[in-house]
Design a protein around this nucleic acid. Structure first.
Lengths: 140, 140
DNA sequence: ATAATTGCAAATTTTTTGCAGGTTC
DNA sequence: GAACCTGCAAAAAATTTGCAATTAT
C-alpha cells in the first residue's frame, strides 16, 4: 500500500483528492495517457477538470513523483516514479509492461557513456513488439 | 552521398523537391523536430507549407523512410531510417547523437523477450545526460 | 494523361494560461 | 490566514483535413 499523502507532502505538494486519485489510477493501470487518467479519475470525481490533470501531471513530473514514458507513434504515458526498469510495449493492444533492468545491460550502457565522458543521468529502454496475449488473438 | 530519388521511388513515393529537401536537412542535422525541419527547408523553398511537412513526415514514417525518436519532455525528433543504434540525448543542449548498438546489450534484451515469448520487433534505447561539450560550458 | 502532391485556409485536437472561488495546512 | 489548488473559460499551440491548382511519372 502506497501512502500517497506522505509521498506528496515529501515533495511539498498538497494532498488533494484529485492528486491522490491520479496517483491511484496510474498505480492501478501501470501506465496511462493524460486522456485515460482524466476518464478514469472522472468516474470518482465527475467535476474534475482536464486542465487540473494537465497541471498536476506537469507538476508531479517536475517533482519526480511521476515519470513520462514517451512511446513511438502514440502519446506519452505516465507512470509512478520507481526503480529503473525496461518497458515492453505491445504494438497491438498498446499495453506497457515493466521488466527489471538487467545488471548486464546496465553495465554495458554505462561503459559506453563513461568512455566518452557523457554524464549519464537516466536510461530509457523500450522494447516494441507483440505480447503473448495478442499473438494468441491473431492465431485464433 | 545518399540517392534520395531512388530511396523515395523504391517506396512508391514521388521524388518532389520538398521531400528531398526534408531528407537532406534531416541527414545533415541527424535528428530534427517538425518545426526545425520546416524552418530549415523554408530557407531553400520559402513557399513551403507546414502542412506539407506534416503530411510528408507521416507518410515517410509509414513507408519506413523516416523514424520517429520520441524524447522525454520534448517533442519527437525524426531521423533517416538506418541500422539499429542507441541515442545519447543531451538534456542541456537538446542534441541527439547516435552510437552503435552493442552486440552484448542486444543479446541480453533478446534473451529477456524470448523467455516470455514477446515478439520483439524494435528496440529503442535513449540515454539521457549531459554531453561533454555542455559539461565544459558549465565549468567555465 | 493520370495519379500523386502541394499550399492554403479552415477545422480539430492538444496543451497552457488567467483568474475567482474553494481547500489544505 | 496564507499559500496553494481547482474548475472554468478562453487562448495558444500542434496537428489534421479538404480542396483547387500544380507537378511527377
Amino acid at each position: 500500500m502506497t501512502d500517497y499523502v506522505t509521498l506528496l507532502k515529501n515533495k511539498e505538494l498538497k494532498a488533494t483528492f484529485q492528486r491522490m486519485s491520479i496517483l491511484e489510477v496510474i498505480n492501478r493501470a501501470g501506465h496511462m495517457s493524460v486522456e485515460a487518467i482524466f476518464a478514469e479519475v472522472s468516474k470518482v470525481h465527475p467535476s474534475l477538470s482536464l486542465a487540473t490533470v494537465y497541471k498536476n501531471i506537469v507538476l508531479m513530473v517536475e517533482k519526480g513523483v511521476l515519470v513520462e514514458v514517451p512511446i513511438t507513434g502514440k502519446k506519452s504515458k505516465y507512470e509512478l516514479a520507481k526503480e529503473d526498469h525496461i518497458h515492453l510495449v505491445c504494438t497491438e493492444c498498446g499495453e506497457v509492461e515493466d521488466r527489471p533492468k538487467l545488471q548486464e545491460a546496465d553495465r554495458v550502457l554505462h561503459t559506453l557513456t563513461d568512455e566518452e565522458s557523457f554524464a549519464l543521468h537516466k536510461q530509457q529502454i523500450n522494447l516494441y513488439g507483440v505480447c503473448r496475449a495478442c499473438q494468441m488473438e491473431v492465431a485464433s
